[in-house]
Computed example of a mutant assay.
Amino acid sequence: MQRYPMTPAGHLALEEELKHLKTVERPRITQAIAEAREHGDLKENAEYHAAREQQGLSEARIRDIEAKLGGAQVIDVATLPKDGRVVFGVTVVIENIDTEEQQRYTIVGEDEADFKINKISINSPIARGLIGKSEGDEAKIQTPRGEVEYEIVEVIYGE
């Protein structure tokens, strides 16, 4: 069984999304299909086909979430030893050695990642390059613009 690392907050968010899909979206889509059927000929009924497509997407997402929750490996960073190493769930401040520009990222699971708010996936190149390193270490990370060297300035547990 595939394991899906996630924070407690990410696990809760998936549970809430699953509940919403099952209790709100599924009945709404079923009602939309029933109403579209009442309009007659289904071959040329765009509302019916749109509702059926939406139903398929919703059911696929439900199956995806259920699989991820079934294989969830919830990691609470508060329970980990605080030894200055970069691990899943921490927030890390890194500095580009060439430009001295600092960036702050929190390493989270796939479904929690949102680059706009500096949450990066454990599977991202940046996270993979930082995992296991400690404060003061340097990490070479392959980016689309080439290799970039960063120094780990700070590792924050439980932010």
Score class of each variant (00 low, 15 high):
M1V: 13
Q2R: 13
M6V: 08
M6H: 05
T7Q: 05
H11T: 03
A13I: 07
E16C: 05
E17M: 03
E17F: 01
L18W: 09
L21E: 02
L21Y: 08
L21M: 12
T23E: 15
E25Q: 13
R26M: 12
R26L: 12
I33Q: 06
I33M: 06
A34Q: 09
A34P: 00
E35L: 15
E35C: 12
E35F: 11
A36S: 12
A36H: 04
R37F: 04
H39E: 15
D41N: 15
D41Y: 10
K43G: 02
N45A: 11
A46Y: 13
A46C: 00
E47S: 15
E47N: 14
Y48M: 07
Y48P: 02
Y48L: 04
A50M: 14
A50H: 13
A51V: 06
Q54S: 14
Q54R: 15
Q54H: 10
Q55G: 11
G56S: 11
G56L: 05
S58L: 09
E59D: 15
D64V: 01
D64P: 02
E66V: 09
E66Q: 15
A72D: 08
V74F: 06
D76G: 09
D76R: 08
L80H: 02
K82G: 01
K82M: 09
K82Y: 00
D83N: 14
G84P: 04
G84M: 05
R85I: 07
V86H: 00
F88N: 11
V90S: 01
T91V: 09
T91N: 03
V92A: 00
V92L: 02
V92C: 03
I94P: 01
I94G: 01
I97M: 08
D98S: 12
D98N: 10
E100Y: 05
E101R: 11
Q102M: 08
R104K: 14
Y105Q: 07
I107A: 02
E110T: 09
E110V: 06
D111F: 04
D111L: 02
E112D: 07
E112K: 03
E112P: 07
E112H: 04
A113W: 10
K119Q: 15
K119D: 05
K119N: 11
I120S: 03
I120R: 03
S121D: 14
N123L: 12
N123F: 12
S124V: 06
S124Q: 08
P125R: 06
I126A: 11
A127M: 03
R128K: 15
L130N: 01
L130Y: 01
I131V: 11
G132R: 02
E135Q: 14
G136M: 05
D137M: 06
D137S: 09
E138I: 00
A139N: 01
K140E: 14
I141Q: 05
P144F: 07
R145Q: 08
V148C: 06
E149I: 14
Y150I: 03
Y150R: 01
I152R: 01
E154A: 11
E154V: 02
I156R: 09
G158N: 06
G158A: 02
G158L: 07
